[in-house]
């Protein structure tokens, strides 16, 4: 009799720990041919709140890291992604059935991490400014992370889309609570494992799986989430902005009905980072 392989129980990443949903509920996913693959946690509002707490704890230390250090950590993430790229491609193609496409997606995702690794110590010089005011003051504008960014990842490009939304937020110094693609959650599960070995401090990135309908409202209304980056349907966008208005969250919403080309390098870079930064202006008198 051939050996029975040990299958892996998928778990989410919250505060550096691997959790199953507090709901105790799961949903099954299957291969394109309909074969059962595994059960994925159905996370809940409570899981979102726990993840926000973890992200809040991680925030101050993450901001304090030097920009150079954050760049090295993101580069380490790229190294870890590369070393497990075949496994990652498999995690996509088991549910999509298209291995070459999955391979292309992984390559683009790794390159994207490298791209953002180089931004950590450069965006400030491009986005901030010294302002020539008409009075004797030294006046400068610097950027500051918003805090906790909630992310609703797209269904398509389950790894590249998710990473393309997470990376600019953490490059800017924010911490993240992200909800992965429901149909193709396996790359997010694997990404969680890779993140924990990539020097990224626990809680900086928290990854949840499950149904949007269970969690969108909590993402939108949670007092401590400062910004939302979501690929969302029109109905979802309406409810997200309505919820966001309770504490004036910043929202960057991508229309789910016209999916973004995540492979395009226009989907990455300085303008993405800017969306998750606040500008702070300081006035200082010039006098002897």
């Amino acid at each position: 009799m051939s050996r029975l392989p040990v299958s892996k129980t998928p778990k989410c990443l919250v505060g550096g720990s691997f959790i199953r949903s507090e709901s105790g509920r799961v949903y099954p996913i299957a291969s394109p041919s309909g074969e059962f693959l595994c059960n994925i946690p159905l996370c809940t509002r409570k899981d979102v709140r726990n993840a926000v707490e973890a992200a809040a704890k991680a925030g101050p230390a993450w901001i304090k890291r030097s920009a150079y250090n954050r760049g090295q950590i993101l580069y380490r993430l790229a190294e870890m992604l590369e070393s497990r790229s075949e496994e990652l491609a498999g995690s996509i193609s088991t549910t999509t059935g298209d291995h070459p496409a999955a391979r292309r997606e992984i390559d683009a995702a790794i390159d994207r991490a490298v791209h953002y690794a180089g931004w950590t110590d450069k965006f400030e010089a491009l986005l901030g400014s010294v302002n020539p005011v008409a009075s004797p003051h030294f006046n400068f504008t610097v950027t500051e992370p918003m805090g906790i960014v909630g992310i609703l990842a797209p269904e398509e490009a389950p790894l590249l889309g998710l990473l393309s939304m997470v990376l600019p937020a953490i490059t800017a110094g924010n911490t993240v609570v992200a909800l992965a693609s429901k149909a193709h959650p396996l790359p997010a599960i694997l990404l969680g494992e890779i993140i924990t070995v990539s020097d990224l401090p626990a809680g900086v990135v928290n990854l949840l799986t499950g149904s949007r309908a269970d969690m969108v409202e909590t993402f939108a209304t949670h007092e401590h989430i400062r910004a939302l980056h979501a690929t969302a349907t029109r109905t979802e966008r309406t409810s997200i902005d309505q919820g966001a208005s309770t504490n004036l969250k910043r929202t960057a919403l991508l229309p789910g009905e016209s999916p973004r080309d995540w492979f395009n390098n226009g989907a990455a870079g300085l303008d993405e980072i800017r969306q998750f930064l606040e500008f702070k202006t300081v006035w200082h008198p010039i006098a002897s």
Binding site: V133, A134, H137, N139, T141, W283, H284
Partner: peptide
């Protein structure tokens, strides 16, 4: 800092 209510179009 050591001033208050200053405004400028460049700021």
């Amino acid at each position: 800092a050591n001033t208050y209510n200053k405004f400028d179009p460049a700021s």
